[in-house]
């Protein structure tokens, strides 16, 4: 079983076999409408614009499993969201990414690349860990997806070569993408 054996549905309901992406570098991300905490759509879109002509595809999988759990008090948290309009990379059908109900693709990805910790220097790291402890302590265990915007980098042969946690900004993955193009 490899990455190209998975079939998923786009947000328009069209079936897409990941084998269609053979020869491309892939960045597979669980996305969420962003509400202040993990604002990474914009940087993902910038990566896509920069590298799509050289063979990068970004595949976004919206997931609501972490919704409504914005950490911090109302004073610290922005009380607005950004929709994902303006994003031109492929967005797929909404689905779960962790636990029993996780989509097979994400079970596979998290088996291929284990959780190796957050970047504790990232500005959201401490808040994220605190929010997880409060709301989903079990999420801190094991290799499952911890939060929105976990990113998996796949090379042109379909090998899952890296996993980046929500505490890694998309812009800082540019060098890893370039190395595979």
């Amino acid at each position: 079983m490899g990455i190209y054996d998975f079939t998923v549905k786009t947000n328009k309901g069209v079936e897409k076999n990941l084998g269609d992406y053979k020869g491309k570098v892939l960045l597979i991300v669980n996305t969420a409408s962003k509400c202040g905490f993990t604002p990474q759509f914009k940087e993902l879109q910038e990566l896509y614009k920069t590298y799509k002509d050289r063979g990068l595809e970004i595949l976004g999988f919206p997931c609501n499993q972490f919704a409504g759990q914005e950490p911090g008090s109302n004073d610290e948290v922005q009380t607005f969201c950004r929709a994902n309009y303006g994003v031109t990379f492929q967005i797929f059908e909404k689905g779960d990414v962790r636990g029993e109900t996780a989509q097979p693709l994400f079970k596979y990805l998290t088996e291929q690349k284990k959780f190796e910790g957050f970047d504790e220097n990232h500005p959201i790291a401490a808040k994220l860990v605190e929010a997880l402890k409060q709301n989903f302590p079990e999420y801190l265990e094991g290799d499952g997806i911890k939060w929105n915007f976990t990113k998996f980098l796949v090379d042109k042969e379909g090998n899952v070569v890296a996993r980046f946690e929500p505490t890694t900004n998309p812009a800082s993955i540019a060098k890893d993408i370039e190395a595979l193009l």
Partner: peptide, 8 residues
């Protein structure tokens, strides 16, 4: 607004 926006 949009549908999945909790603040909306």
């Amino acid at each position: 607004s949009f549908e999945a926006c909790p603040w909306c």
